[in-house]
Design a protein around this nucleic acid. Sequence first.
DNA 1: ATGAAAGCGCTAACAT
DNA 2: ATGTTAGCGCTTTCAT
Lengths: 336, 336
Amino acid sequence: MNPPTIKDVAKAADVSVATVSRVLHNLAGYSDKTRQKVMQAVEELGYQPNAIARGLVNKRTQTIGVLFPDVSSSFSSDILRGIEEIAQEKGFSVIVCNTAEEGKRTMKYLQVLREKQVDGIVFTSEVLKDEYFQVIKEMRVPVILVNTMSQKYTIPYVKVDDRQAAYHATDYLIQKGHREIAMLSGSLKDQIAGYPRFEGYRQALADNGIEYDESLVAIGEFELEASRLAMRRLLAEAPSFTALFAASDEMAIGAMRAAFEQGLRIPDDLSIIGYDDLKFARMVYPPLTTIHQPLTMMGRMASEKLIALIEEGSTQVASSIVSHHLVERQTVKSKP
Amino acid sequence: MNPPTIKDVAKAADVSVATVSRVLHNLAGYSDKTRQKVMQAVEELGYQPNAIARGLVNKRTQTIGVLFPDVSSSFSSDILRGIEEIAQEKGFSVIVCNTAEEGKRTMKYLQVLREKQVDGIVFTSEVLKDEYFQVIKEMRVPVILVNTMSQKYTIPYVKVDDRQAAYHATDYLIQKGHREIAMLSGSLKDQIAGYPRFEGYRQALADNGIEYDESLVAIGEFELEASRLAMRRLLAEAPSFTALFAASDEMAIGAMRAAFEQGLRIPDDLSIIGYDDLKFARMVYPPLTTIHQPLTMMGRMASEKLIALIEEGSTQVASSIVSHHLVERQTVKSKP
DNA sequence: ATGAAAGCGCTAACAT
DNA sequence: ATGTTAGCGCTTTCAT
């Protein structure tokens, strides 16, 4: 009636459970005919090991937990895909945790992951607060940070250098002949995607002898509608500009929308470069020139590092600054 | 050194483990001061129950497995979000499984879910093959289908009526005065998103006295580039048409691209309606008129049904055909 | 080569 | 009100 256990197999094969366990794990210590008998019993009963019982004794669940601020975003799900891919290859399952806005559920989820005895955690796109770190520390499992990092604690991370990538984007615009370059930035309080990108923009200007003009940058949210409005304001009130660096693709698209509404043509009248290279960057028209972050690969790397930490008990793995690249599509044009 | 167990708590509180278990579960059978002692010990030791051990005895893991053909698609991740939301509310964790193209890893994953003793499964967007059904049956856990269904087995599902929704889309175009309506369809062998949508299109034409013209429909993949090419061919070779029904938003966007390239204006020269209402439908320009599928809600419903099945051991819950709706944006225009 | 038995951390009778 | 104990299904000494 109930699913067969190792005991049932042992009985059917007329051996002890220890022996069954041995053959199941390819350990030494049984004759070939014993092996046959056991395998046959397994086959006939349709036996499947119970990973829960196994986990109890091994203190390993072959499961990792992954925390996202928003699982359903294109950004998160690309990372997730990479994580899952490697995890399953290496025999791990992944529990997804949506921490919701401002990590409202982060603590609760860490709790759950702890009770569920996950072997490791990947923490993405959010600032690692002290309280998070404390409970993770108590869990005594490895963590990997993705698209975020911690100044305070030395935890391996996988991310691109946002400052450098933003610098790259801005510099590209400059190389194309633009001098009046506006920016749509996230909050400067945002240590992940806000401040660093703004800094990169500013530095690129400085290095090219272009004076920074505060009225050329609009600071707002990473969201289409808000960005459309911000861009509209920029267009109305700011000094004129021929190019725009948007701190995210979604912002860039909001900006494009605003530009269209003012009758501007892109890239003829205005060049725009985005950041992220989410799937829809190539779906808009004209296709968006942007900074590509290799999200799926970052997920893979994180997964690999984490599992290395789990399996080899390697105390430390190195962090990775992965390289972004700029993908030229059709929203940037040389200034004549 | 090791994380404290219930035994440690019992010792510290100077009671038996049974008593600790009782207060942890709010069962009756202890004095108030005992309760105090226990809670204090829990506090001091930082005790956290071990869900694995609990799962072993309860035969319940408070975990569900979710299978997606592609976790990272906008489509899947919207559903995932809904599932996760309800699951965490009800105290369940979700293991994500990416079955990859053509369910290559489905069998393997079902295996894993079985070993991990998940309490239930949600199976999305793929045909439920016999072999899948067999192992799920052996697992003796409830399943819910999302965006798919089974003729052969009576398994509760959550989906929209694709045929009806496609009918709606086509009929809408007709009501707007269009008579020459092309379609970009998925493979007619695709029982989920292919054939039913095609049928809806055809039926709407028929019911409005419009003759079906085979040369007006292009059958291809649900993918941007392929659709762009298909559309280009349609534009070149098919009889002229004033409107297009695309079986997915991505197809619609590919079609828009092809149209732009031919110098057509949308919706002035050509009306287009899509299907799905993924996030990027509103990001393109002009924003896409399309059939909205309430994916996140469908995820929530599936999660709810599944958990009901798990908890109340309800033998059966009803399937739900959820209603789509048509969202009017800017790609369809009345024919003058 | 094989088996007996002691747990892993917890729950749930069954006693008292 | 509280404790004792027998498992849950498995792995792993330790014997033999």
